[in-house]
């Protein structure tokens, strides 16, 4: 099951560039939360702070509190432990090109020393079913490489790979921006199904996508969280003029 994410006074820097400023919000468990805002507003940095990927850049740093469930990720855990609880899917599908479909899904588990063959088979099947890819690849699991799949299938493979380690949170950074409308629709359906089991945070430039998939939406601008509210409120009657100007396309 997913857990809530509590963020208190989060600040982040790239060198001297203060990219996130005093972010405070509560992301509810087992819901999809969308983050929107113009390029460079800090939304991707924000999700990278949730799984401590931000600090993999040597000139980057972050301060503040991020709690995933009861776990204070900057205080009580190492990055590798956090990434087991927080899966991430990126804009461009990035399957391991030389690995089979099966090995792509099992990669994270094997990396963590998981070797029970039977149980591995079960997890791969379950993950592929949960990512709505099983029916399309079940006969070629070990024959075909991840790279042989279509773009939309590759993205669902990456989601299966993220789900295989049984995370509580799934971060998605523009997961459908490189996909055609049919593949995009499949990813959105998947988000709808997965949120009963995981807490989902999705960064998107596609306003309609945010409106379709998320119950909560946050609007970022210049490194600050301008507004965080129900998606319904944000897209029909936002409180802040800057949010309205952005979603109606008057800037950005």
């Amino acid at each position: 099951m997913g857990v809530g994410i509590e963020v208190i006074n989060l600040n982040a820097w790239y060198g001297t560039n203060h990219t996130l400023q005093d972010i405070n919000l509560n992301i509810p468990a087992n819901h999809a939360t969308a983050l929107i805002g113009p390029s460079g507003c800090g939304k991707s940095t924000f999700v990278r702070c949730i799984n401590r990927m931000h600090e993999t850049n040597p000139i980057a740093r972050a301060t503040g509190i991020v709690r995933i469930g009861d776990l204070d990720i900057y205080k009580d855990a190492k990055p590798v432990q956090i990434r087991r609880r927080v899966g991430m899917v990126f804009q461009r599908p990035n399957p391991f090109p030389t690995m089979s479909i099966y090995d792509n899904v099992a990669a994270g588990l094997k990396l963590n020393g998981y070797s029970n063959r039977r149980s591995l088979d079960e997890i791969v099947e379950r993950s592929l079913k949960n990512s709505a890819l099983w029916d399309e690849v079940k006969d070629d699991l070990k024959k075909k490489s991840g790279a042989s799949l279509s773009g939309g299938q590759q993205q669902r493979l990456c989601i299966a790979r993220a789900l295989a380690v049984d995370p509580e949170v799934l971060l998605m950074d523009e997961p459908a921006s490189a996909l055609d409308p049919v593949s995009t629709s499949k990813i959105e359906d998947l988000i709808f199904q997965l949120k009963s089991q995981y807490t989902i945070v999705i960064v998107t430039h596609n306003m309609q996508q945010a409106a379709r998939v998320a119950e909560k939406t946050g609007f970022f601008l210049n490194g600050r969280m301008v507004e965080f509210d129900s998606t319904h409120k944000i897209f029909t009657n936002p409180s802040d003029k800057r949010t309205e100007d952005y979603i109606t396309g008057r800037f950005g």
Binding site: M207, Q208, A211, F235, T236, N237, P238, T243, E244, I247, T248, G249
Partner: peptide, 9 residues
């Protein structure tokens, strides 16, 4: 145009 917020209203 998929209008939003005040434009949609």
């Amino acid at each position: 145009e998929q209008p939003m917020a005040i434009d949609l209203r």
